[in-house]
Write a protein that binds this DNA or RNA. Structure first.
Length: 227
DNA sequence: GCATTAACCACAG
DNA sequence: CTGTGGTTAATGC
């Protein structure tokens, strides 16, 4: 089912898009297409021709660059947000894959048009740059965490990330398997199990399979900081 | 040395 | 896919 998007009235209209002129909005509507994905579908794949920027309107996605041994869950993104911007300007191929970990809805925006907006509309470009800066700083932080925090600290951090950045709730269903959470936190799958049940035993969180309820955020914050 | 941490392995559910 | 237990290698005190 092909939908004709109405970018101007879209309830997920991005901060950047708010700065587009009426004329530019018309251009955008002509050059983007909306699609829905179920959990586990590939939005774009590393190595394929980078011909769109994806505007993730709603839902959660994991970004996975291919490593020599396996794909690495490097970032988890929640809509609304743009995906694939880093390869939009001067790269022919996507440099990582994006796979949905919930139902999502997304728009595919023609890359040439996206470039034109950035070149011609400073305020649009400014919003895009803000996002890129945040991503960059997040990656730095993750690097530091990986080398300087222990497994408990990294997992505490991941739990707080899901609570604060993804679900805005004390309770949530983990969208990842233990193995994937291990991949995301650079921790062995067994350690993830152990640490989660340890947190449960210490009444810091309540775990029942994928269901997580954070009981003591303060304690988690402390573990995240000192871990 | 001794303790801690986390990965790897194996074996159930 | 998970949870546990045993083992092991690396690191710190």
């Amino acid at each position: 089912m092909i939908k004709t998007p109405s970018c101007n009235t879209c309830i997920f209209k991005s901060e950047a898009t708010k700065f587009l002129s009426d004329d530019e909005i018309v251009q955008l509507e002509k050059n983007c297409a909306s699609a829905e994905f179920d959990k586990g579908e590939t939005i774009f794949k590393q190595g394929t021709f980078s011909k769109s920027v994806v505007y993730l309107k709603d839902g959660i996605v994991k970004l996975l660059p291919e490593g020599p041994r396996k794909n690495q869950i490097t970032a988890i993104k929640k809509g609304p947000d743009y995906l694939g911007v880093p390869t939009a300007f001067d790269e022919k191929h996507y440099r990582y894959s994006a796979v949905s970990i919930s139902k999502i809805s997304a728009c595919f925006i023609d890359i040439e048009l996206f470039k034109q907006f950035v070149i011609k509309n400073g305020l649009f470009a400014f919003r895009i740059i803000i996002n890129l800066c945040k991503d960059n700083l997040d990656v730095f932080e993750k690097c530091v965490n990986k080398s300087q925090k222990n497994a408990r600290g990294r997992i505490a951090e991941a739990l707080l990330f899901f609570k604060e950045e993804i679900y805005n709730s004390e309770s949530f269903i983990l969208p990842l398997t233990r193995k994937e959470l291990g991949n995301y936190t650079d921790t062995a799958r067994e350690c993830v199990s152990r640490i989660l049940s340890e947190f449960d035993k210490d009444r810091i969180i309540k775990v029942a399979g994928r269901k997580i309820k954070i009981i003591n955020s303060k304690a988690l914050e402390l573990i995240k900081k000192t871990g």
